[in-house]
Each structure stands twice: as C-alpha cells, then as structure tokens.
Amino acid sequence: MSALADTGRVVTLVGNPRPASRTRAAAEAAAGIVARRLGLPGPGVTIELADLAPQVFAAERPDVDAALALAAGARLLVVATPVYKASYTGLLKAFLDGYGPRGLDGIPVVPLVVSASPVHAHAGDAHLLPLLAELGAVVPASALALLESELGHVEAATDRWFDASWVHELAAAPGGQRQVVQA
C-alpha cells in the first residue's frame, strides 16, 4: 500500500471485483489520455478495489482508509466500473460509502463505465454521476461510457468524449465547490 501514500496526482479507482480486469486497463488508458489533455503529470496511481475487497466491511481496514484518503486527495480521479445489473458494482458503492458527506468535495472526477450493450451505456449518467455529485465531486455533464467492443479503441473513444463533455473545464474548477460541467 506504499503507492497509496502519494497524493496530488491522477488516481484511477477501479470498482471491478475481478483484479486485472479489462475495466482496469481501459480506466488506466483513459486516465492517461485525460491527464495528458489537461496537462497533468503522470504516471498516475491505481486503486484496485478487488485487492481491497476483504477489508471493505472489516472493523480494521487500514488499506481501505489509505485508499479513501488517496482518492480524496487526487488532482484528477477516474472512477471506473463495469456495468452490473444496469448500474455500478456493489464493491464500488461499498467503498464510496466510506466517505462522509461531501467526501470528494471539489475533486475533479471522470466517471467511466464499461458495458457489453449500448442499452447499458447510460448507467454512468443515471447512477454513477449522481453518486459522485452527492459526494461533492466536480463532474462533467456525462460519464465516459465504453462498450466492450470499443476497448481496443479507448483513445479514440476517450478523445471524442473529452471534446463533447468539456471535461477540460474540470481543470479550472475551483476547489471546494460542487459543480456540474454542462456540455
């Protein structure tokens, strides 16, 4: 967990219950693309919730607490999840429940969902965006939704989303203020 001591950088939070998932690979690639477009230094740090799952509900959870602190101190946070039952994973929700009200206050967050079907591409907008906004995150008007068929083209899909969502405005968002960037 020593990598989690680093703050003020790009942090990728992966809510897939399977370690080393395609969601992780896509999220890390997207985080690098967005960071580069915003002029943020790399490389970033990844929090793999699959590795922390045994501690999420434990009484003693030092690694989870360190991960919560790291995400809350990020310069840019990418929160990624596969779509399960038309929403984000329970593991991601349980982790984010570790924050008190406005636990991500003023943190620019890119919500990212990976789905098998275009029918579920809206899950990020319908479920993940409101959760992150409730925590006080600065979020774009729409989540980055990647279809499994696009996983070989993450850069092109991320660039299209970046340009359409005005996510670059996240970099200028004042700290401590909740803001939804409109497209």
Rank of each mutant, 00 (worst) to 15 (best):
E60F: 14
V11T: 05
A25D: 07
R22Q: 13
S117R: 13
N16H: 11
D65A: 08
L132R: 01
L91M: 07
A126P: 04
E28P: 10
A133H: 09
P41V: 14
V167N: 00
A30G: 10
A126E: 11
A30W: 05
A183Y: 14
P82C: 01
H120L: 03
P41E: 15
V138M: 10
P43Q: 04
R24Y: 06
V113R: 02
V138T: 15
L77M: 02
T158S: 02
S142A: 14
S142H: 13
G175R: 15
R24I: 07
E148N: 12
V11C: 05
V110A: 07
A27L: 03
V78F: 05
V78T: 01
V78G: 01
D51T: 12
L4K: 11
E60D: 14
L151H: 07
S2K: 09
L151K: 07
A143L: 05
R102M: 13
Y99S: 00
P54Y: 05
L104F: 00
S117K: 03
V167G: 14
V64G: 07
D65F: 14
P130H: 06
A143R: 07
E155C: 07
T23Q: 04
K93T: 09
A35V: 14
G100I: 15
T158F: 12
A72Q: 05
Q182N: 14
G136D: 00
A80T: 05
L68K: 03
D105G: 12
L144K: 07
L112A: 15
I33A: 08
L112T: 12
T12R: 00
E48Y: 08
L104Q: 09
D65Q: 11
V45R: 02
P43Y: 13
E48Q: 12
A67T: 04
